[in-house]
């Protein structure tokens, strides 16, 4: 890339951003050395004894880490798949609504939860799903006598995570698809009308293909988040009964690192997660550039 004389000030404007990156993202990366140490805060990071891969071998021999990894994968993949399908379907249908005011109102309402913190949503969910909550009272009227403890059930916990996550985020993701839908050339629909296509056929043969690139792009990019099963959400809904199905890598790291003061093991698990995530980002990028022509470099 060639720089012309009067574009240097753009580079200057980069400096604050780079400085932030250096201080907050690059410098702390030296901390990963802790994963290979028996970390002793008194001696600090540079003088604590190195133990090689001991922390990692402990991690891999430990049932709880595997459980956390397995849960993370199951939860986040389910979230990714549902979180992809629901907003697409929703956007396609909402796009068919001709009444502009209604369309706007719906759009606003469904994307509002995106701005609520999990802390609040978790409180609401707990109230709804509790033994004396709304749902159980309704089930009771339908003749179900024993209340179901949804949040204390290893069968229900993961579905609840997925459903609530999708409920919170689908409205927001749908905006992207709605934007993509407006970019489709209206003459295609006119042509279809002349050919006598039904609404469903128009969706099937015009709208859907029209946003496929966007769908693929978002799908591949979401791959990088496959090890992020949603700390805020799980942490707020979690209880000891559902540890077997609900304990994810992030909550596990949080527990061992901060609550049990086992900094090095926490770092090791965190590092493991970062490495896998890096591989996934690289893969996602390759796939995105191949299928959707998305490139940064």
């Amino acid at each position: 890339m060639r720089l012309s004389k009067n574009s240097y000030h753009y580079l200057l404007m980069l400096i604050p951003g780079l400085a932030l990156l250096a201080v907050f993202s690059i410098a702390p990366m030296f901390g990963i050395i802790m994963a290979f140490q028996h970390f002793n805060p008194g001696k600090g990071m540079w003088h604590s004894p190195l133990v090689g891969f001991e922390n990692f071998s402990y991690m891999f021999h430990n049932q709880a880490s595997w459980q956390a990894i397995r849960n993370t994968l199951i939860i986040s993949i389910s979230k990714m798949v549902t979180g992809l399908i629901v907003p697409v379907v929703f956007a396609l249908f909402l796009n068919e609504v001709r009444h502009m005011f209604f369309k706007r109102v719906v759009q606003t309402i469904v994307y509002l939860p995106h701005f609520l913190s999990w802390v609040i949503i978790a409180g609401i969910i707990k109230d709804i799903l509790g033994a004396n909550g709304l749902l159980n009272v309704m089930l009771g009227h339908l003749g179900l006598h024993d209340p179901i403890l949804f949040l204390g059930s290893n069968t229900w916990f993961r579905p609840i995570l997925v459903v609530t996550d999708v409920w919170k985020e689908f409205g927001f993701s749908a905006i992207v698809y709605l934007a993509a839908l407006t970019n489709i050339n209206p003459s295609l629909y006119e042509a279809a009308d002349i050919d006598g296509a039904t609404r469903m056929q128009k969706i099937r043969y015009i709208s859907l293909p029209g946003i496929t690139t966007t769908v693929i792009l978002l799908a591949t990019l979401s791959l990088q988040g496959v090890l992020n099963a949603g700390f805020d959400q799980v942490f707020n809904l979690y209880n000891p009964v559902v540890e077997p199905t609900g304990d994810i890598i992030d909550t596990y790291v949080y527990r061992i690192g901060f609550e049990q003061v086992n900094y090095e093991l926490g770092t090791a698990v965190g590092l493991f997660k970062s490495v896998i995530s890096l591989l996934l980002i690289a893969t996602a990028y390759k796939l995105a550039s191949k299928f959707a022509g998305y490139r940064i470099f």
Binding site: V23, F24, A27, P28, G31, M45, S117
Partner: peptide, 20 residues
């Protein structure tokens, strides 16, 4: 919990300052 989160960030800051 919220505060916990900001603290995580803070730790990174401290750590990075120490490292720097």
């Amino acid at each position: 919990i919220e505060r916990g989160k900001t603290k995580v960030k803070r730790s990174k800051t401290i750590l990075s300052v120490v490292i720097a």
